[in-house]
Amino acid sequence: MTNSNAPSRLNYQQQSPELMKKLVDIGMGIANSGHIDRGLSLLVDILASQLNGCAFCVDMHVKEAKLHGERELRLHHVAIWRESPLFTAKERAAFAWTDALTRIAPNGVTDELYAEVSAQFNDKELSTLTFRVATINAWNRLNVAFRTTPGIYDKAFGLDKAGLN
C-alpha cells in the first residue's frame, strides 16, 4: 500500500505533453462517440480507479459524476455494486466487465461474462466500453505511478463546483 500523503513524484503531463495529448484525444473520442452514456462512463471510471487505488482519479470522477447529477448514495455504492440494489442490469454488466478487464484473471475473460455483457450492450457499445476501461486504467497507472495529488486540478476543471472539497 502506498502512502497517499507522499509527495507527487513528477509531472508526467509536462514531461510527455505529446503523449498526454494523445491519451486525452482518445478519452475525448470515447466521450464524444455517443455510444456509452456519460453517467455510466463516470461510474465505470470510479470503479476502475477504486480497484487500482488511484486516489486522484477517484476524487476527480466522483466530483464529475456529482456535477453530472449522479445521486450521492449511488456514488458510495459503486464500491459495493455486487450487493447494492441501486444499479441496473446494464450498469452491473458494465461493472463486471470493468472489474474483469482491470483485474485480468490468468484465464482471461470468461465466455459467461462476455455473454452477460453482450446481452446488455451492442457490438459498438461494447467496443467503446472496452476502450473506456482501457483508457481509465492507463490514467490510473500514470497517476498512481507519479502520485498525482487528488484535487490539484479542481479549479482548472471546474470540479470545485461539486462542493465536495
Rank of each mutant, 00 (worst) to 15 (best):
A6R: 11
A119H: 10
I104S: 00
L10Y: 12
L86E: 07
G158N: 03
V133K: 03
G39A: 02
V62E: 08
D111P: 04
E18A: 15
K161Q: 11
I30D: 03
Q14V: 05
G34H: 01
P85K: 07
K90C: 09
I152W: 03
F157H: 04
R9A: 01
N140F: 11
I80K: 05
M20E: 14
S41A: 11
M20R: 12
D111R: 05
V144G: 02
F95H: 10
Q14P: 02
V109P: 02
G53K: 00
T130W: 07
K124D: 13
F157K: 06
L43A: 02
A156C: 00
F95Y: 10
I136P: 03
L164R: 13
A65S: 03
L51F: 00
D160N: 11
L159I: 12
V24A: 06
K66D: 01
T130K: 02
E116M: 14
T88R: 03
V24W: 11
I104P: 00
G163Y: 12
L67H: 01
N52D: 10
G39D: 07
K90E: 12
D37C: 06
L47F: 04
M1Q: 03
D123Y: 00
S16W: 12
G158E: 00
P7S: 12
N122L: 14
H61N: 09
A94H: 07
W97H: 02
A96C: 08
H77T: 02
A79C: 02
A94M: 08
N3F: 10
A138G: 14
W97G: 05
G108K: 02
T102G: 01
L19N: 15
S118M: 05
R9Y: 13
T102C: 13
K161H: 11
H35M: 05
G108V: 02
Q15F: 15
L47K: 05
N32G: 09
F131V: 09
E70Y: 04
D25W: 10
H61W: 04
F146L: 15
W139C: 09
N32V: 01
W81N: 06
S33K: 08
K161E: 12
A105N: 03
D154L: 08
E83D: 09
E70I: 14
K124P: 01
N165H: 15
C54N: 15
Q120D: 05
